[in-house]
Simulated scan of single mutants.
Amino acid sequence: MKKENIKILFERYLEGKTNQEEEKIVLDYLADQTNENSEFHQVMEKVWDKQAKKTDHSAEAEQGLVQIWAKVEEREPKSHPLYAIFKYAAAIVVIISAALAWYTYQKVQKPAQIAITYFTKTTLKGEKVKLILPDSSIVYLSAGSKLIWPSRFQKGNHRNIRLEGEAFFEVKRDTTSPFVVHSGQMQTQVLGTSFNIYAYPQDHTFSVAVRTGKVSVSANSQGKMKQLSLLTPGMKLFYYLNKHNYSVGTERITDINSWIKNSFVFKDASLPNILKSLERYYNVNIELQSNQLSKCRFNATFSNKSINDVMEEIHIMSGKHIKYKIDTNTKTITVWGKGCQ
């Protein structure tokens, strides 16, 4: 039989597709070809010389070897007399060697994919944490927020993470792997910069403020992401989720991440929104008992103050029209009044 036909038959043997007569042809041929000067022996030596010197004891390798032995045992001739055992032993060794060489080659050509797992960090009211991502980017996660990120980022692909709540990012620059923050229907993309995202779903307002670099902000429009604006340092974008529109303004660079150092800045903010933020920052429950106070708006900065001091400042800023009561046992603050000054 021609060598080409033997090769085809050998491949069929390893796949378990040969019949008893074809098996005998393969084994007889290989048994005759296993001396040191044979063409087949020389080919096998070259194959093994290319393999790693260190034995692979991984679980994957062990499983591969088990499968190879099972295949050989399954295809091994059962009816040969004792005198033929030694003849066919060499052929069986060749089959094992060829199969192992093929397995190792496949492993080199198609390296095993490292599984990607995802981590989630959720902060409680009154809690903030600093996180370091796999690419060495830094995230400061604010109170009542959740961040989801992968165990590793793939070079050349987007570095995708998800955020609910507020966080300040210091992103390591990588022009080949854009850093993308997904927040509901909003998407913020950068290459390397620092910026703050405010994205609490229940507040219905999304904002991005840039401290350094450039930031692209997009929104989902009829199933497609549409870029809203390209922000530079000192710029801040507000997106109103219910109205599906946005505005762009400015903010002092030093105020953008001031909350990290317990300094809370509010610009033309409504009283209900201020109270929501204070609930998260100070881990308290605030009950607003007057609809008239919803129209009150303030510009205020509270730096390293207790919640008692903050409530007293709001009381004074309103011309003492806003009243409050703090229950320290239940950590509840009741707010009422007839309006603002």
Results as ranks from 00 to 15, higher is better:
Leu133Glu: 07
Arg162Asn: 13
Ile322Asn: 01
Val210Gly: 06
Gly337Ile: 07
Leu30Ser: 03
Gly16Gln: 13
Phe266Asn: 00
Leu131Trp: 10
Lys50His: 02
Lys87His: 14
Gly184Ala: 03
Asn329Ile: 15
Phe206Met: 03
Phe264Asn: 00
Ile307Asn: 06
Val43Asn: 13
Ile92Thr: 15
His244Val: 04
Val171Asn: 12
Met235Pro: 00
Val210Tyr: 07
Ile253Glu: 10
Thr120Ser: 12
Tyr240Asn: 09
Gln109Tyr: 05
Met311Arg: 08
Lys323Ala: 02
Glu4Asp: 12
Tyr140Thr: 11
Phe298Ser: 01
Ala59Ser: 00
Lys146Ile: 10
Phe86Asn: 14
Tyr118Cys: 07
Asn308Lys: 13
Tyr240Gly: 05
Phe238Gly: 01
Asn5Ile: 02
Asp135Cys: 09
Asp268Pro: 01
Asp32Tyr: 00
Ser303His: 09
Tyr105Cys: 05
Val72Asp: 08
Lys46Arg: 14
Leu133Pro: 06
Asn242Gly: 01
Gln222Ile: 04
Ala209Ile: 07
Phe169Asn: 11
Arg173Ser: 15
Ile314Gln: 03
Cys340Phe: 06
Ile256Glu: 03
Lys320Trp: 02
Ala101Cys: 08
Asn273His: 08
Glu251Ser: 13
Thr123Glu: 09
Glu73Gly: 15
Ala112Gln: 09
Asn329Gln: 15
Phe195Cys: 15
Ala84His: 13
Asn304Ser: 11
Thr117Tyr: 11
Val181Lys: 08
Asn242Met: 03
Val208Asn: 02
Val265Pro: 00
Ala143Pro: 12
Phe298Gly: 02
Lys214Asn: 00
Gln63Glu: 10
Gln227Ser: 06
Thr328Glu: 15
Ala89Tyr: 09
Ile6Gln: 12
Val217Trp: 04
Met235Asp: 11
Ser258Lys: 03
Lys87Gln: 14
Val47Leu: 15
Gln51Leu: 08
Gln202Asp: 10
Phe168Glu: 05
Gly213Cys: 06
Glu11Leu: 14
Thr332Gln: 12
Asn160Val: 14
Lys2Ile: 05
Tyr88His: 12
Lys146Thr: 15
Pro134Glu: 08
Ser229His: 13
Ser277Ile: 00
Gln63Arg: 09
Phe195Ser: 15
Pro111Lys: 02
Ile260Thr: 10
Leu147Arg: 04
Ser58Lys: 02
His80Val: 13
Ser277Gly: 07
Asn245Phe: 04
Leu271Asn: 07
Leu9His: 07
Lys107Trp: 02
Leu131Ala: 08
Ser303Asn: 13
Val108His: 10
Arg280Gln: 09
Glu73Trp: 14
Phe10His: 14
